[in-house]
Write a protein that binds this DNA or RNA. Structure first.
Lengths: 254, 254
DNA sequence: AGATCTTATATGTCAGACATATCAGCAGTT
DNA sequence: AACTGCTGATATGTCTGACATATAAGATCT
């Protein structure tokens, strides 16, 4: 009924029809999720795993690399080394989320409207919490980014980066790490995509003003004005997306 | 400026201090993201990659397994086989998201309040779109799940599963696949966790009523009542979480 | 022309070996 | 007594070469 329904040991019976390394990785993954292998616990050595599963060491290693790719384990060389169960921290999960989200968007050629709609809908959901919990530290981060965005000679890349930092800070102001993690895919992965599409057309001054209004509302802790400011930002972004599409339609692709 | 800023070839210069397989995987991953390796395109054979990177074939294989673990490539045996760039589809990304979210929650012992707060905040953000776009098909799915939940003899597991299906259908009703993907981590991964914590205490009848009211509002396309119904569900769930915590505090852990 | 056999190619797996990082313990010196 | 440096044990990282097996394409036979 709980997590610890331990069969306690790894399933070492392998189906010869499927890849061994895949099955071994699954077996170990299941054990980790079930809690049979505690966080920071050490897995048996590669040699011992090879014995248990009755495969060679390279095969075991391929399985371990699969798990390492998911940040489920880390390895250390040396005498007391080995493979250790990783505590999946937010930073790793964040990075992972961004990679997956980026791939999902680019490989499926998701159109701007769909991506932006999802992003703004999700980010808007953070506003109530942000208004209620924003700390002076959060507000300082937000204002710092807006100040940077107002500088004249800023490159497009730096402006985009600052924009991402601004939105991330806004999400973090909600004070919920799980929420921040969920939003990583929307902000860090989508925002650059949106910037790439829109940064040629947009007016930085207008964005700075909209950002400023948003901060003021959040600082005052007033939800309605915050939503209004955010919706204005949304509307402008969507409008830019539409203009870009029209331009693209007019001119042939390079 | 666009994705295809191709340096066209893989970085084959490796740093001897770090693991080769990790660097090779990163190099190929970068090439995929940059669009140098098109979807469904074939990678060079393992032997050729080994030559290019000046490493042995097992090392190349470890790198490929890392990519396979992320669903970035698939492999085929045989004459015209090899490793092919995978189009990351929503189903795979969905599965991936659920795994990561589950691990993140369990391994960090995220408390119910934090997880639930994030989940409800995000799901609430889907309501406006759901009210605007829900199709008869969506509504039918929603009603079917509620009907199942009202059956007397339903097991706890089945009730939980139906609950998840209900919320997933609600999110899908927003008609935005990117949004649905983002919500997978919240609904599919968090909901079972929440159920596990709350299903001993909750009143099924009350939940069925709340679900029904929510569907009615969504069907009518009226956002305010939908939000009200959803907030009632949120409040009830949070309240249950509080009760459980009190019970737990009273009795020693098994 | 169609069915079957052969061959080439690529991945999947294995065995054994060496290189290297790291820790623990012991020796020697200060 | 405390610090230093050596040494061995252990485990991962990597290499070499080989065999097994799946698959497609060409060659052969009916």
């Amino acid at each position: 009924m709980s997590y610890k329904c331990r069969g306690n040991r790894l399933k070492t019976q392998l189906d010869p029809a499927r890849e061994f390394s895949q099955q071994i990785a699954q077996s170990i993954r299941d054990a980790i999720i079930a809690g049979d292998l505690p966080v920071d616990g050490r897995l048996p050595s590669e040699a011992e795993l090879a014995q248990r599963f009755e495969v060679s060491r390279p095969t075991v290693r391929e399985a371990l690399k699969r798990l390492a790719a998911q940040n489920l384990i880390r390895t250390q060389r040396g005498a007391s080394g080995g493979a250790f169960v990783n505590r999946l921290n937010y930073a790793q999960a964040h990075e992972h989320m961004v990679t997956t989200a980026t791939l999902l968007l680019t490989m499926n050629a998701v159109d701007y409207e769909t991506a932006a709609e999802a992003r703004f809908a999700l980010e808007r959901a953070c506003l109530p919490l942000a208004c209620a919990r924003r700390t002076p530290s959060h507000l300082a981060s937000l204002r710092a980014e807006v100040a940077r965005q107002a500088v004249e000679g800023l490159s497009d890349e730096d402006f985009c980066a600052s924009d991402v930092a601004f939105h991330r800070a806004l999400v973090d102001a909600a004070g919920n790490p799980v929420l921040s993690w969920h939003m990583a895919g929307a902000v860090d992965a989508m925002q650059p995509l949106m910037n790439m599409i829109t940064f040629t057309a947009r007016s930085r001054a207008r964005i700075v003003v909209l950002h400023g209004a948003l901060i003021d509302a959040v600082e005052a802790g007033k939800l309605k004005p915050a939503c209004a400011a955010f919706d204005a930002l949304t509307t402008y972004s969507m409008q830019l997306g539409g203009e870009i599409r029209l331009q693209r339609r007019g001119s042939a692709a390079p």
